[in-house]
Design a binder for these strands. Structure first.
Length: 274
DNA sequence: CACCATGTTCCTTG
DNA sequence: CCAAGGAACATGGT
C-alpha cells in the first residue's frame, strides 16, 4: 500500500485489460471493466491483507471501491507502457504513459468490487480495537491450536502463516497449545508479539527499495518475505523461526522443528516454546 | 516423478 | 446452528 499509493493517486484509467478472468471474482469481469473505465484513483488503503483502492468515476456519484488481494504470489505495480508485460499478467489498467499491472503466478489473488470478505474481518492488529481484553475474550473457549486460530482473519486481521510462527516464537508459546488455554500473561505476550512482528514487517516492507513506479525498465512489485530482486543484502528480512527447520534457535541453540497443523507448516523451538 | 509453497473459499463431516 | 478439517485453485522450485 505504501509503495503503490504515491504512484496511483490522481491517475485516470483509460482502459482495462483482463488476461485471466478467474482473478476477477465474485464480481463479473464486464461489470469491473465498465465500472473502472475512466475512473480516477483517489487513494489506496488497506484492511488486513486486502488492498483498498478508492476511485471516482464520472459514471457514478458515489466513490468506487476496488478491492485487491495478492494471494500468495500476486504483485501489483506500475510500469511504462513500453515495458514488456510479465509472464503471468492477470489484469492491466492503462493509465496513459504508464500502466498498472497485476500479475500473479498462481492466480490465487483477486480484484473485486465486492466488499463482503471485509465485513467478517477482525480488528486491525495495530489499532486500539485490538486490545488485550478483546484478544483474551476472542481466544476464550477455543480448543483449536493457537497457531491455527491465529490464521483466522476474523480473530485479528492480517496474520498469515509466516508471522503466526514468528509471533508465537517471540511470545515463547507452543503452537499446539489450545487457544483457550493461554494464561493471561501469555495472552499479553502474544498480543505484544503480534503487534511487534507486524509493525516491524510493515516498516521493513515499506523501506525496502522496490522498482515500483515506472522509473526503470523492470519492476519488483510486492514481495512476501526474503528480499526484493537485486536489493542489497542489508534489506534481507531476518525471520527468527520460519523456514529454519533443523537450524539452531537463536535464543537457546535447540534445533528448530517443523510440524504440520491444519495442513500448514509451523516452525517452533521445542526448547524455549515449551 | 513426488512433494512442497506465502491465502482464501467452499464443501463435508461431526 | 457451529467448529473443524480437507480439497480446490495453478504454477514453479527442489
Amino acid at each position: 500500500m505504501r509503495h503503490l499509493r504515491p504512484h496511483l493517486k490522481g491517475k485516470r484509467i483509460r482502459a482495462v485489460q483482463i488476461f485471466r478472468e478467474r482473478v476477477i471474482r465474485p464480481t463479473p469481469a464486464n461489470q469491473l471493466i465498465q465500472t473502472l473505465r475512466e475512473a480516477t484513483f483517489r487513494d489506496v488503503s488497506r484492511r488486513g491483507k486486502f488492498l483498498l483502492f478508492e476511485l471516482r468515476s464520472p459514471r457514478s456519484k458515489t466513490p468506487v471501491q476496488l478491492i485487491g488481494h495478492l494471494g500468495m504470489t500476486g504483485r501489483m505495480f506500475l510500469q511504462r507502457k513500453s515495458d514488456p508485460l510479465p509472464k503471468h499478467t492477470a489484469v492491466v489498467l492503462e493509465l496513459g504513459r504508464e500502466r498498472f499491472v497485476y500479475e500473479d503466478q498462481r492466480y490465487f489473488g483477486r480484484l473485486s468490487l465486492d466488499a463482503n470478505s471485509l465485513a467478517r474481518m477482525g480488528p486491525e492488529p495495530l489499532s486500539p480495537e485490538f486490545s488485550v481484553d478483546y484478544f483474551a475474550e476472542a481466544l476464550a473457549g477455543s480448543k483449536r491450536a493457537i497457531k491455527v486460530r491465529l490464521l483466522d482473519q476474523d480473530l485479528v486481521a492480517g496474520v498469515g502463516n509466516i508471522y503466526a510462527s514468528e509471533a508465537l516464537y517471540r511470545a515463547r508459546i507452543k503452537p499446539s497449545l489450545a487457544a483457550g488455554k493461554l494464561k493471561r500473561p501469555q495472552v499479553h505476550a502474544l498480543h505484544r508479539a503480534i503487534r511487534d512482528v507486524l509493525s516491524e514487517a510493515v516498516r521493513f516492507g515499506s523501506t525496502i527499495p522496490l522498482h515500483y513506479g515506472a522509473s526503470s525498465g523492470r519492476s519488483d512489485g510486492l514481495f512476501y518475505y526474503g528480499r526484493a530482486v537485486d536489493a542489497p543484502d542489508f534489506y534481507e528480512e531476518r525471520l527468527r523461526v520460519y523456514d529454519r527447520h533443523g537450524r539452531s534457535c537463536r535464543r537457546c541453540k535447540t534445533l528448530i522443528r517443523k510440524i504440520v497443523q491444519a495442513a500448514r507448516s509451523t516452525y517452533y523451538c521445542p526448547g524455549c516454546q515449551g
